[in-house]
Write a protein that binds this DNA or RNA. Sequence first.
DNA 1: TAGATTGTTAATCGATTAACAATC
DNA 2: TAGATTGTTAATCGATTAACAATC
Lengths: 221, 221
Amino acid sequence: MLKQNAVRPVVKAIPEPVLRRLPVYYQYLRKINLEQSGEYISCARIAEDLNTLAIQVRKDMAITGAAGKPKLGYPIRELIKAIEIFLGWNNTSEAYLVGAGNLGSALLGYQGFKDYGLNIVAAFDASPDKVGEEIYGKKVLPVKKLPEMIRRMGIKIGILTAPASCAQELADIMVNSGVKAIWNFAPVKISVPEGIIVQHENLASSLAVLSKRLALLLAER
Amino acid sequence: MLKQNAVRPVVKAIPEPVLRRLPVYYQYLRKINLEQSGEYISCARIAEDLNTLAIQVRKDMAITGAAGKPKLGYPIRELIKAIEIFLGWNNTSEAYLVGAGNLGSALLGYQGFKDYGLNIVAAFDASPDKVGEEIYGKKVLPVKKLPEMIRRMGIKIGILTAPASCAQELADIMVNSGVKAIWNFAPVKISVPEGIIVQHENLASSLAVLSKRLALLLAER
DNA sequence: TAGATTGTTAATCGATTAACAATC
DNA sequence: TAGATTGTTAATCGATTAACAATC
């Protein structure tokens, strides 16, 4: 009997821990590739260098579709390519950044994004002082023009580096104009309609992990 | 018979997912507290606002030691206090920041850290152009003085915002001088001796989650 | 062929969720 | 007392790890 169930995911969701580890391999492999220590690398070697387990490396690589050769290991360049394609980093996505403050400027100046298929095309800000400026070669436009520009350029990714107090409002504007994914650096939870992606970057969460671990460490005798 | 096993953890390790969620509650509760919608709040309400499950909120709160009252809910201010104390955010920790570039400057200017018990006392940089400057009221000192200053001030936390190429070297210097925890924003894995904490902030990991989710979303029909 | 390394199937572990008891 | 909400114990789920088979 055929399965009648029409409502099934076309692609099964990838576990988030795997997605978070892939870039770590990617950065590592690119470095290794430049240093050229042979064409192949074993998962044991990767695991040792990255302080993890060989079996986890194998499992993660399997998810990208990359295949190794028994006795030889994994072909480094193919591994890099497989991760790139799997994450969609082989095609560049254009993004707008909203909020050209300190953090926003830092992101505008970050050269690494082009390796990850992300191109920040322009920035938007509410302050007349900033509008018209260029930050690392990216124009700062008035936030008033945001909806029109998102529509015109078909921008799908918004990077939100505005103050917490305006975050929700700006998110709404972006979503209403066609943005499908928001990378949120504002320290508030923002609400979006179903089907829109929010990736929340919370420094406080990371700091909490560090704080607690340090407290436990210092408390030990 | 008494347990002879001397090597057991004094405090059992807290699951990382819990640690990462606590600041989210914290930020939310502080906002709620200012808006003063009563003295108590139910976990159902928290869960709804934060888009999670009531049972998870209850479990997380239990870990901090905060107690609620059946029928009433949790006392908001006590909840805030409990999280603060649990994470050690009631006492301020002093930190040095190493690498006064774009990102470093953004962190120096971030006002939120004082709410999380973190005080960045000074910055260090290798560039003579930056040394002597003040960024958001924080002095930029020559990196040469880093070991001496860490020792003299008894600094335990280092924030690493230097380029990837110097990250390991700077981490070694910090650890050798007495730093116990490194918050690493450089896009490389750094190695530290056992017993030293590294909290690795990897934008690429977050971007990978966003990229893949967006790709799947856009691929659906 | 023998041996090293990948790939796959099974077991374990831990976090999340559910069910229900306790309590104000 | 009745009912709402917390707190706790049990069940489920998913990710990690282990064991072993496949393969170059």
